[in-house]
Measured scan of single mutants.
Amino acid sequence: QRITLKDYAMRFGQTKTAKDLGVYQSAINKAIHAGRKIFLTINADGSVYAEEVKDGEVKPFPS
Rank of each mutant, 00 (worst) to 15 (best):
E57K: 13
I42N: 03
Y8D: 00
Y8I: 01
T4V: 04
T4C: 07
E51L: 08
T4M: 06
D55K: 08
Q25M: 09
Q25T: 14
T15P: 11
V53H: 12
N29W: 15
A27V: 15
Y24K: 15
D55R: 08
A34H: 10
Y8T: 00
K6G: 08
Q14M: 15
R11E: 09
V58D: 04
G22Q: 07
K16V: 05
I38C: 01
I3Q: 06
K37M: 13
D7L: 07
Y24G: 15
N43C: 11
G56E: 07
G13I: 01
I38N: 00
A9D: 02
G35P: 03
K37D: 09
P62H: 04
K19P: 00
R36K: 06
K54W: 12
L40D: 00
V48F: 04
Y8Q: 01
A50R: 01
K54G: 10
K19D: 08
A18I: 02
I3R: 04
L5M: 04
M10T: 11
S47R: 09
I32P: 00
S26L: 09
I28N: 00
V23H: 03
H33R: 14
I3A: 05
E51Y: 10
Y24Q: 15
S47K: 11
E52C: 04
Y49S: 12
L40F: 03
M10W: 09
K19I: 10
Q14L: 15
F61M: 03
I42E: 04
A34M: 12
L21H: 01
G13Q: 01
A31M: 12
I38E: 00
A27M: 14
S63I: 09
Q25D: 08
E52K: 01
A27E: 15
I38R: 00
K54E: 13
I42P: 04
E51Q: 08
D45H: 05
I3E: 06
P62N: 05
A34F: 09
A27R: 07
A50P: 02
K19N: 12
R11W: 10
A31R: 01
L21R: 00
A18L: 02
E57Q: 13
E57V: 15
E52G: 01
K19C: 11
K30Y: 11
S63K: 10
S26H: 11
T15G: 11
Q14T: 15
G46V: 02
R36V: 05
H33N: 14
I3W: 15
I42K: 05
V58W: 14
P60K: 10
V48T: 05
R2S: 08
K30R: 14
K54Q: 12
I32W: 02
F61L: 03
F61Q: 02
R36Q: 07
N29F: 12
G35W: 04
P60L: 07
M10V: 11
P60H: 06
S26R: 10
G56Y: 06
P60D: 05
L21E: 00
T15E: 15
I42L: 10
T41W: 12
G13Y: 01
R2H: 08
L5V: 02
R11A: 09
V23W: 06
K6N: 08
K37W: 07
M10Y: 10
S47A: 08
V58T: 13
P62W: 05
L21M: 04
F39L: 06
F12Q: 03
Q14W: 14
V23T: 13
K6P: 05
K16C: 04
E57H: 12
F61V: 02
G56P: 02
R36W: 08
D20T: 07
D55Q: 08
Y24T: 15
E51T: 09
T17M: 03
A9F: 09
L21S: 02
E51F: 09
A31T: 04
T4P: 15
L40C: 09
K54H: 12
V48M: 08
K16H: 04
G35M: 10
T4N: 07
K19H: 12
L5C: 02
Y49L: 09
V58R: 08
T15K: 13
F12P: 00
N29S: 14
L5I: 05
Q25W: 13
I32Q: 02
I3M: 15
G13P: 01
F61H: 02
E51N: 07
E52L: 03
F39V: 07
Y24F: 11
G46I: 02
K16G: 03
K30S: 14
G22I: 03
A9Y: 11
V48R: 03
P62T: 05
Y8L: 01
A9L: 13
R2I: 10
Y24I: 11
K6Y: 12
V53L: 13
Y49M: 10
N43V: 08
D7E: 14
T4F: 06
L5S: 00
A44S: 12
K37C: 11
V58E: 05
K54C: 14
V58K: 08
M10C: 11
A34V: 08
A27D: 15
M10I: 13
G35C: 08
V58L: 10
M10D: 13
N29Q: 14
Q14P: 13
V53G: 04
S63A: 12
K37R: 11
L40Q: 00
G35T: 05
V23M: 10
Y24E: 15
A18H: 02
T4Y: 05
Q25R: 14
G35R: 11
R11V: 09
L5P: 00
P60I: 07
K16E: 05
G13K: 01
D20P: 01
D20E: 07
K6I: 10
V53A: 07
K59Q: 12
T4E: 09
V48H: 03
K6S: 09
A34R: 09
L21V: 06
V53Q: 09
G56A: 07
D20M: 11
K19G: 07
L21P: 00
D7K: 06
K19Q: 13
S26I: 10
K19T: 09
K30P: 04
F39Y: 13
F12S: 03
D45Q: 06
A31D: 02
D45L: 05
G46Q: 06
S47E: 07
H33T: 14
A18N: 01
A50N: 01
P62A: 04
E51R: 06
A34K: 09
N43M: 12
S63H: 11
K16Q: 11
F39H: 05
P62D: 06
Q1G: 11
N29H: 15
T17G: 01
Y24S: 15
S63G: 12
V53T: 08
V48S: 03
L5Y: 01
Y8K: 00
A9C: 13
K19S: 11
V53I: 14
Q1L: 13
I38W: 01
D20K: 07
D45M: 05
K37F: 10
H33K: 11
T15I: 13
Q1T: 14
F61P: 03
A31Q: 02
G22C: 08
G22P: 00
A9W: 08
D7Y: 06
Y8N: 00
R2P: 08
